[in-house]
């Protein structure tokens, strides 16, 4: 389908009409300056005021708690998988979070297919909302290559001044545009305006990381003894908030929950967090990462080394949520740059 134009005033009707066939989740302001994704009746995204939501929209694909299977032990053992999923639209997902979902797609399909995630993902349409300005001081999407995006959404909308220039990526995207919103085909003039706005925005998104992002695994491979981990060990509260708010953290704990009948029950999973003390504790009492500094080092390695090496792409999408939510201001960019600089200084001395 060709690029189309959707008027700003028609977005509310779009949301409303989508509710005929989908549960629609969009951005709303929970408290002043704090946004969340929530079930919405009408378009409530504040657009230019937007800051990344407290939790990323990943919660609709991989919820905080989820039942995986139900079992009965009587009269004989019976196990049934449980996949709870319904048709849903995520309305107004920013590029960083679309990248985040794209990374979760890789995680939940490689090695083992996660049927709960995949069913939810298949039932989900993503309406992207492009960013023309950095949304806040902690955003570093452009630094990790996650501002520009050309995949992972069904449609992508860009505000070109009261009108949304809309790229339709998938057949499902085409279907919802045709069925649920008034649109016109974009003309040459609008296409040019869109391209100019896209190219103008480049200068507004600084590169905050002091090396090419693809070099990061190398820096982190040599950073096990970097003094930054000692410094962070003293500061980190071990509260887990950086993990909980991260669009690409996917670790979970699995546990069984018996019903009070004591013959049947559920196997469930719940988000886990590698910065928590219990994460790497084993039943004999040892802990592979016993200090907060070691746990944080592990978290940074997950984002900029281990997964990056395996998948050849940054597992930090630059939303800045971890920096924003850290009670003691541990800053992802400052930390990455400290690792780079400490490495370079050491190298010079040698």
């Amino acid at each position: 389908m060709k690029d189309v134009l959707i008027k700003g005033k028609d977005l509310s009707a779009f949301c409303h009409n989508l509710q005929d066939s989908f549960i629609v989740y969009g951005v709303r302001e929970k408290e002043e300056g704090h946004f969340i994704f929530d079930e919405i009746d009408e378009f409530s995204d504040s657009l230019e005021k937007y800051k990344p939501t407290i939790l990323p929209p990943k919660k609709y694909l991989f919820p905080q708690q989820e039942t995986l299977l139900r079992f009965d032990t009587e009269p004989h053992l019976e196990i049934k998988s449980v996949v709870e999923s319904k048709k849903q639209v995520l309305f107004g997902v920013r590029p960083c979070d679309i990248h985040g979902i794209g990374l979760l797609d890789k995680i939940f399909t490689s090695d083992n297919e996660d049927s709960n995630y995949l069913r939810k993902r298949a039932d989900t349409l993503i309406i992207g909302m492009d960013c023309m300005e950095p949304c806040y001081e902690h955003a570093h999407c452009a630094s990790v290559g996650c501002l520009d995006i050309d995949d992972g959404y069904d449609i992508m909308m860009t505000d070109i001044g009261g009108v949304f220039f809309t790229t339709v990526k998938t057949p499902q995207g085409e279907e919802i545009v045709k069925k649920y919103v008034e649109y016109t085909i974009a003309g040459e003039e609008e296409s040019e305006r869109f391209l100019k706005l896209r190219s103008d925005r480049k200068g507004r998104f600084d590169n905050k990381i002091e090396t090419e992002v693809s070099n990061l695994p190398l820096f982190f491979k040599n950073a096990d003894n970097d003094p930054v981990w000692k410094e962070l060990d003293e500061r980190c509260l071990g509260c887990g908030r950086c993990n909980i708010v991260c669009p690409t953290c996917y670790c979970f704990d699995v546990y069984d929950c018996m019903d009070l009948t004591m013959t049947s029950g559920e196997r469930c999973r719940e988000w886990d967090a590698c910065t928590l003390k219990d994460f790497a504790a084993v039943s004999t009492g040892e802990n592979f990462r016993s200090t907060r500094g070691l746990r944080l080092r592990h978290r940074f390695n997950r984002k900029f080394n281990y997964l990056m090496t395996k998948y050849n792409t940054s597992f930090c999408v630059g939303c800045g949520r971890c920096t924003r939510s850290c009670p003691v201001n541990i800053d992802v960019i400052e930390t990455v740059n400290a690792v780079i600089n400490n490495h370079n200084n050491n190298h010079e001395r040698e």
Partner: peptide, 13 residues
Amino acid sequence: HPVCVECQMRENV
């Protein structure tokens, strides 16, 4: 773990 984990999961400010 500390209360922050549950608090953040509930999207409290």
